[in-house]
Write a protein that binds this DNA or RNA. Structure first.
Length: 597
RNA sequence: GGCCCUGUAGCUCAGCUGGAUAGAGCGAGAGUCUUCUAAACUCUAGGUCCUGCGUUCGAGUCGCAGCAGGGUCACCA
């Protein structure tokens, strides 16, 4: 049992014995003592003074004395107003380091593979344009949350749902037929997703011209948008697609193939992957079946024009369309189908959807309709709603060309990493291949940390004019800390054979050492909290705190140069523990740490 | 307009289920490499926590109202 659990129990006992206050240990919250005061953990006694009928200082004194008398790990306590600060004995911290030094997986729970899995859907791209910064946030979050849940012991299945069909891809196809002159990724040297995206933009350009012409000749805007020849043709193409038209299907397969090759490349560079990939073209029919079931059950209804709806006015929402009047399906139809399919495939304990907060309404409706269709597992659906990535002048809009392209951004990060590394000039002994790998993991480390350190639920700002930092609260800072530690541990291992061996008794620690160890001690609860909140940001901030505490210690405490062999061995052990913790927490963020840099 | 989210230092962000004098990084200023990797460390300056009212022994944190910004309310996804 760790010290904080032990303390809360002892406090509960003290409250009971001293004042007959019955409080269970779980209801007692300790906080870490603030730097300005001496002590390790603090109990705020104000909540108990009324029942104790004593002054806050007296209550704190009583509890402190009681706990100190019963817990040998508590070496002392002090009282400041209503705050009771406990001091933990060095012997406890030393024993703690001793225990975790040999445990490379400290803080990580073992996964139980026979448990019902948690299915995490993320990425979920459309196949009509390349990935941009918004998708990057999605992919990094999805990957990291999966790693985080695994670290907390869950059996996670990562899935991708590729939106490979619909009006959007028809637009790209149509524009390519019209204006493409048979261009291919091979003939142009373009990445396939970028080539297809080019024609999506091309469609929009010509479509706008047509709308403008119609409006100039006196047609209302609504009508013009609906009746522009390109739009009509795109819709016909979608209809032909749903009817299985060979020509349309052939072109569709060809162009989607280009896009997949491009996506795979971007996923590979981002270091993300999936256990299973769903394609909406395979699942939307199931959605249509569900709609039929809903009609049979009477929870859906058909309007005169043939369109199918769900009435949610009783739930305070609107009516929601599920099938267009021409019988083709919409987003919601498909999502109903894929939800059912996924539930059947995995028998999941939870179905997590990593999707932007602009779709909060969609998921609210999705859960409601699943419930109306009679699926008891509707409440297992959890929308992990993350905030938008905004640019200094607002939201990214693909049609207005204000997007930060994912591949471009990664390229830029890599060349910045190379520049920085060359400036430092520390990597001369590396081979070209090792150097290239280093630039890559530093680039991705900077990018991933930048995005993952902010609370997922909040919108965040990205300023393309200021490139992502490599100093301060950044990924490379933590990577650097790890590399420095590894350097020490290598020397220690080679020269001294100190790994995991140490005489622990009677060592006096300094403040810096104690802070590092206390931070290490908080790792398991940090991971638990982060997993409960689906927040890699908590892990990122933890890793930063740990690295900072270590650097401060490293700065003015000799390690290998320490003359006292016992102290030296203890410090090397602290180093190994920190290196492990940094590697494991960064791994949760999908960030690799280098041996040297 | 209805509903949802956000508002903390010049900028980007922390601040766990309410607790001590609100913290980091960047940027600004000053120091530290003959010493285990200076992508580091140490110090200084910088705040009406959007505003008001309320709940509480105690509010950046909870409630209500207002102001500001964003999202959404598609036969787009």
């Amino acid at each position: 049992m760790n010290i904080t659990d032990h303390l809360t129990q002892a406090i509960a006992a003290a409250l009971n014995e001293l004042y007959s206050i019955s409080a269970d240990a779980a209801s007692i919250t300790l906080q870490e003592t603030r730097r300005e005061f001496s002590g390790d953990y603090t109990l705020v006694v104000f909540p108990y003074v009324k029942q104790a009928r004593k002054a806050p200082e007296a209550v704190a004194q009583d509890i402190g004395a009681h706990v100190a008398a019963n817990m040998p790990e508590v070496s002392g306590f002090n009282v400041v107003k209503g705050f009771l600060n406990f001091e933990v004995a060095d012997s406890y911290w030393l024993r703690f380091i001793e225990t975790i030094a040999s445990d490379g997986r400290f803080g990580l729970s073992e996964q139980s593979a026979d448990e019902a899995p948690v299915v995490v859907e993320y990425s979920s791209p459309n196949t009509n344009k390349p990935l941009h910064l918004g998708h990057i946030r999605n992919n990094l979050l999805g990957w990291s949350v999966s790693r985080l849940l695994e670290a907390a012991g869950a059996n996670v299945k990562k899935v991708n749902l590729v939106n490979d069909r619909g009006i959007h891809i028809c637009k790209s196809m149509l524009a390519w037929l019209r204006y493409g002159n048979g261009e291919t990724p091979e003939s142009t040297g373009m990445k396939g997703d970028h080539l297809v995206g080019k024609y999506y933009v091309e469609f929009d350009k010509h479509y706008k011209e047509e709308v403008k012409q119609l409006m100039d000749s006196g047609v209302e805007e609504e009508q013009a948008k609906r009746e522009a020849p390109l739009m009509v043709e795109a819709q016909q193409m979608l209809k032909r697609w749903e009817e299985g038209d060979k020509e349309v299907r052939g072109l569709w397969e060809k162009m989607n193939g280009w896009v997949y090759a491009g996506f795979d490349e971007t996923y590979r560079r981002l270091g993300v992957g999936f256990d299973k990939v769903y394609y909406e073209s395979n699942t939307y029919l199931l959605g249509k079946e569900l709609v039929q079931k809903g009609l049979d059950l009477g929870v859906l209804f058909r309007k005169d024009d043939g369109s199918v709806w769900c009435d949610l006015t009783a739930d305070g929402l609107d009516q929601k369309l599920l099938l267009r009047r021409d019988g083709t399906s919409v987003y919601m139809t498909q999502d109903l189908g894929t939800a059912l399919l996924r539930h059947n495939d995995f028998g999941a304990e939870r179905l997590i959807y990593v999707v932007g907060n602009e779709q909060d309404y969609h998921f609210k409706v999705l859960k409601l309709i699943l419930g109306k269709l009679g699926f008891s597992w509707a409440d297992k659906v959890y929308h992990l709603s993350y905030g938008m990535v905004e640019l200094p002048n607002g939201k990214m809009k693909s049609r207005e060309g204000t997007v930060v392209d994912a591949d471009d951004l990664i390229d830029e990060m890599e060349s910045t990493a190379e520049e920085m590394s060359r400036e430092h000039g520390k990597n001369d002994e590396l081979t070209d291949e090792e150097r290239k790998h280093l630039y890559h993991i530093l680039a991705l480390g900077a990018l991933k940390y930048f995005i993952l350190k902010v609370d997922p639920t909040k919108n965040m700002l990205f300023n393309p004019a200021e490139s992502i930092d490599f100093n301060g609260n950044t990924g490379p800072f933590i990577q650097y800390t790890h590399a420095r530690i590894r350097s020490i541990v290598r020397r220690a291992g080679e020269n001294e054979g100190l790994n995991g061996q140490c005489e622990w008794d009677g060592i006096q620690m300094n403040e810096k050492e104690r802070l590092v160890i206390k931070t290490l001690h908080a790792l398991p609860s940090t991971i638990r909290q982060a997993a409960a909140a689906y927040s890699p940001a908590l892990v990122a901030n933890y890793a930063y705190d740990l690295a900072k505490a270590f650097n401060s210690f490293y700065q003015d405490t000799p390690i290998l140069k320490e003359a006292d062999q016992k102290i030296k061995a203890m410090r090397v052990n602290i180093c190994m523990c920190v290196a492990n913790a940094l590697r494991n927490t960064m791994d949760i963020l999908g960030i690799e740490v280098p041996e040297r840099m």
